[in-house]
Amino acid sequence: MGPWPRRIRRRPPKPQIVGSSPTGPGLRVIGLWAGKAPVGLRLMHEYVIARGVIDSLLKAVSGSGRRIRDFRVVVGELSMLNMELLNEALTRLLEASELRGAGFRMEVEPASVGCGSCGFSMSFREAVSGLSEEEKEMIHFIPDLLASYTSCKRCGSLDLRIVSGRGVSVRDVSILEQ
């Protein structure tokens, strides 16, 4: 999924509800990377994430009597998750939960990088292009090391920041009409 060879797994992002607002017929739930899972859980990466997604949804409808029809899972490119495994984990855990029957879609959010000096925006892949495999490996571990190894492709500034592509979020949750 990422622009580098995948070896060890990075810290699993944990979906977390940070706010919700009604949007149309459903409920929109946005999750951000909370990242509290201990290192040992990396082996269970996708299952930890899937569990987090389901817990977030259960929390959102808890006590309301509402049922979830479907939702969308947006996976940041930098989270380095295996989409196939995550899909499998979500399917299995959903069926074993109170959300049985709910549908979902998954999509990857490309990582992008912005320059704080000139405002230029570039994809993460573009930002790391031209780096050696060893340099990409370092950035793979800690993406925020990006500016230690490369600079803005337009103005050369080191003031780079990752704008998108981190973590996992649950969006566009639609509720089944009673």
């Binding site: 990075r10 810290r11 990377w33 990242g35 704080g116 370092m138 571990f141 800690i142 925020d144 090391l145 500016a147 230690s148 190894y149 080191l158 003031d159 780079l160 920041r161 990752i162 981190r166």
Partner: peptide
């Protein structure tokens, strides 16, 4: 990891880096 290079980081990235 940065191999002695500068590491410019804005506040929003720092917490991420520390956790990572």
């Amino acid at each position: 990891l940065a191999k002695g290079r500068p590491l410019p980081l804005r506040g929003e990235s720092k917490e991420e880096v520390v956790k990572e």
